[in-house]
């Protein structure tokens, strides 16, 4: 794998307050990297620095080893899909898509050829003469993607491109986008606050918090081996046991419940059930631990033949390998 973008000790501050503290990051060619974090964590600022809309306060960004900091956005070989799509309202679908090629003075014949290809690809051929106002949200989103990929960029930047769509559409477009990225082989840098979306699409996820990248790894690694307390609690549900100054995380589905008298050698904690929610395939059971101000979540398969009721005394156990020691 070859590095396409390298961020070297990038730092960004607005009016003297630091938004993105200094850090470095390498992005590999052809990968789907997601910047994931709550709103205000600096992920959009980071993306805008890569696109060239913001200048880092210090540090340098490299594309194929060449420094980018003083290259204006219109000379960077990458394109962006904006959050609200930013389609030009005074142009038709076709004119929107061709805008980039026109600006780069690509020959008319080449423009036509690539337009047809792209229109076909995103299935907008019939809508080519419409204006953005006459399109649905999903169609607008496809125009935004077509307008970017027609330029064959080295990198495609996507700023919450599905954020404005409803849940069902978002689900199906997640797969479409992932396939698109595989077929085109373009590097995707994708910004979202939706962890499910990040999990479903990414090769690697960079979890961001307060401008810092807390952990960068594959979705499975992030889920199974979170390194920090923030990652452990932000991604999925987790139980955090604080003992002797260390935090240990155990996922609710890794916790097994026992009746007080069975298999006592596997018991680690004791407690009383405060709540039990039946969700079809599983039960979410909440247990108040004895002598501790803590409630543990445990997901039990509904088909295990056991019936957990509020007020029952239970014992909890889990395998040593399912424990994750958090470094901070």
């Amino acid at each position: 794998m070859k590095t396409i973008i390298h961020l070297d000790s990038i730092e960004k501050s607005f009016h003297g307050s630091i938004v993105v503290p200094s850090f470095s990051l390498s992005i590999e060619e052809g990968e789907f990297l997601t910047l994931l974090g709550p709103s205000g964590c600096g992920k959009t600022t980071l993306l805008r620095m890569i696109a060239g809309f913001e200048e880092p306060t210090s540090g340098e960004i490299f594309l194929d080893g060449k420094p980018l900091t003083h290259v204006p956005p219109y000379q960077r070989d990458m394109n962006m899909v904006f959050q609200q799509y930013a389609l030009f309202p005074h142009m038709t679908v076709e004119q929107n898509i061709l805008f980039g090629l026109k600006m780069k003075k690509v020959s008319a014949a080449e423009q036509k050829k690539r337009l047809e290809e792209v229109l076909q690809y995103v299935q907008l051929t019939e809508l080519r003469k419409r204006t953005p106002k006459q399109l649905s949200g999903g169609q607008q989103q496809r125009v935004a993607i077509a307008r970017a990929i027609i330029n064959n960029p080295r990198v495609l930047l996507l700023d919450e491109p599905l954020g404005a769509l409803d849940y069902q559409l978002r689900k199906s477009l997640q797969l479409e986008l992932k396939n698109l990225q595989k077929n085109l082989g373009i590097t995707f840098i994708y910004v979202t606050h939706d962890q499910e979306e990040a999990m479903a699409m990414s090769d690697r996820i960079a979890v961001m918090n307060k401008g810092l990248i807390e952990q960068i790894a594959s979705p499975a690694e992030i889920y199974n081996h979170p390194q920090t307390l923030f990652v452990a609690t932000f991604i999925g549900e987790n139980n955090i046991f604080r003992e002797n100054g260390t935090n240990t995380a155990v996922r609710p589905e890794k916790i097994k419940l026992y009746q007080p008298q069975t298999e006592p050698e596997k018991h680690r904690k004791q407690g009383t059930i405060t709540d039990a929610v039946f969700l079809g395939n599983l039960r979410k059971v909440y247990i108040r631990l004895d002598g501790q101000d803590m409630t543990v979540m445990a997901h039990q398969y509904a088909g295990d033949g056991l019936d957990w009721k509020v007020g029952d005394r239970v014992a909890l156990g889990w395998a040593q390998t399912d424990e994750v020691i958090l470094t901070c």
Partner: peptide, 13 residues
């Protein structure tokens, strides 16, 4: 400012 940014992103000076 988004539309102007989009234009610049697509290569417009």
């Amino acid at each position: 400012k988004e539309l102007e940014e989009a234009a610049q992103d697509l290569g417009a000076t």
